[in-house]
Amino acid sequence: MENRNGCKLVDLPESTRRKDRFSFTLLVVIIVLIPVLVESKYYLIVLNIIGLNTIVVVGLNLLIGFAGQISLGHAAFFGLGSYFSGILTANYGFPHWPAMVVAMLATGAIAYLIGYPALKLRGHYLVMATLGFGIIINILMGELEQFTGGHDGLIGIPPLSVGGLTFDNDLKNFYLIWAFVFFCMLVARNLLDSRVGRALRAIHGSEVAANSLGVNTSSYKVKVFVLSAMFASVSGSLYAHYITFISPSTYDFYYSIQVVTMVIVGGMGSLWGSLFGAAILSFISEALHVAKQYHIIAYGVFLSLILIFLPEGVLVGIQHFYQSKKLQRLIAVKTPFLLWFNRF
């Protein structure tokens, strides 16, 4: 490092990179170990759903947490991934991996068509555009019966396979889905720790300043929106091939709200928070099935509490608590006592 005065330069980005390497290794270890520890098929299904949600949430967090734009239509992009994959493979006998790529590209193209005009305008026009779009797509899933199977759903979607290995049970799909989660998080981390990632965060910080530093802000906002839609599409394709049956009710407005909630609970702009938010809320949704129709109320109360007490998200909130002076003082006072206590 160029340093003539001999003062030490704090190299923040490098240290986070090392920390990330540790976190990613830990993630792999956990992924490999979980099926050994979890024997119940039910929990394996929940974990798979968490994985699928994580992919959507990581993509959405790129948009919300880093570029500062909100989408209320991610259920539609998730659904487009499912339906493109499902229709191409079940109705037209398309090979599944290429179908998934086609689904991703087509969803990206559709996102571009919505994002381009909506993001040209200042203000939260993207929210309105995606809200309307999500509802329209959801209706089309039910109405375009000759392609989608209508409200009864689309059946007979083949499972994915690689070589001779077919992903036809929950355990195999667990490894497949979580391999995708790992890859998506890695790719998102790469983006954030790069020129483009910094430009996106700069847009969130001050759009006019980012623009004056040579960042084409409107183009970047559209691109990150498209990327975010593609993440959702990949997750949707995986879902379709895993469950092998899809119907419009999965992709309603409620799901769009759910993924936005996961981003907020996990922490806007926190990559690991996305995983955390998806995990917590997927579990809570499952647990709240007992409460039947009241589960939405409980869900709402939970979201309100998070927004009031931990506005930066649960994971980031906990981190801040650990770094807070109050806690450090507490430890400083208690540690000598504990050391003394341990002698007996």
Binding site: R201, A202, G205, S206, A209, L213
Partner: peptide
């Protein structure tokens, strides 16, 4: 109009946006 959400180094790194192409 400093990017409050970023470190000093990152602020300057955004300035180098036009000097890189990826």
């Amino acid at each position: 109009q400093v990017f409050q959400n970023m470190t000093v180094r990152e602020n300057v790194m955004v300035g180098l946006h036009t000097r890189s192409r990826s």
